[in-house]
Every structure is written in C-alpha cells, then in structure tokens.
Amino acid sequence: MMSVLSLELGIFILGILGASALLQKSRQEAGSDGTRGTITAGLLFATVGIIASGWTWSIHNSLMKSGSSSMCASEGLVQCGSVIGDPQWNSLFGMPWGVVGIASFGAIFFVLMTLYLDQNAKRTPQFVNYLWYLGIAGLPFVAWLVVVELLLVEGAPHICPYCTVIHLSMIGVFVSSHIMRGRRASSTW
C-alpha cells in the first residue's frame, strides 16, 4: 500500500476531497456565495485534472524511454506500467491520453474561469451549458478507459491510480456543472 500511495497521489486525492467538500458545502448555500463556491469546486476539479494529466503524460514518456518509470509502481493490481505503457491502449489516435486530458481539462478550466471572473455576465447561461456539454462529453471516455483498465490491457485487471484521479476529476466537473444548471433553473444563482 505504501508503495502505491506516494506524496503526489496523496496531494491529488486531497485536491479531489477538498473540491468535493466545497461542492457539498456550496450546495447548501443559496445565492451568489453558493454559486461562487460551486464554480470554485469545479475549478479545483479541473486543476487536479490538468496536473494529474500532466503527471500521466510524464509517466508515459518515461515508459517510452526506458520501459519503466519511477513515478508510479509497475507491478501488481494498482500500477501504471501495464495501463499507460500498453501500446494498444495508451493513446488516442497516436496522442497520449495525458495530452488529451490536459487539452480537455484546459477547455473546462477556461469556461469555469470565465464564470468565476464574472458570474453574472450575459453569457453565463450559455457558458454553464458549455460546461455541462463538456462534462457529458467526458463521461464516455471515463467509462471506456475504466473498461480498458479492468478488461483490456495486457494482464488485466489493473488500476492506474493517477488515471483514477483524472476520472474522478471529470466526474467532479460534470457534477459541478449539473449543480450549476440546477441553480440557474431554480433561480438560486
């Protein structure tokens, strides 16, 4: 267990837990304070998603260079080597999943940051919808990558902890966007 839970993974998990707690707290609050808390929670999820994606990209690159990585375990059920290192499943049209993650969470981050900077702008309803669509679009990828980890990679099942952090971040973004849409619909924005 100790070999799996590294400092970086601990920080990512704390980020997810912090964002979840903030989201839960903000749900109870009506008005702009609650809205700002929800947006902040979404931003935190997106930030964790971007950084964790960068981390998996580094693992990918080190695996391509030397066949192993000091950044994640390569043996056992919970590991990265067999998932990020699998040539059949470690990329999307030749692009490492980490890069796909950085780009996707980057787009989400931009929308959330726009909402954060001016939550009462005229574009707000449109941007809340954009965020929801981005969240929706991310979920099939999360589901597919979980299937890949559990069933398709060489020696499956394996669980890549950093990939799981990214999946949870995407789910967190989707839940945040769903709550924002709810706040708009119920006029508690």
Partner: peptide, 19 residues
C-alpha cells in the same frame, strides 16, 4: 429573485481575456 436573465449584466470582454 436572483439569477434571472434580467439580472445578468452585459458581457465584459476583458473577462474572456483574463480567463
């Protein structure tokens, strides 16, 4: 009522730039 469309102020393009 808060959050109704009529409460929304005009878009500030600087927001997009900073975001």
């Amino acid at each position: 009522r808060r959050g109704a469309s009529s409460d929304l102020t005009k878009n500030n393009e600087e927001t997009l730039l900073w975001a």
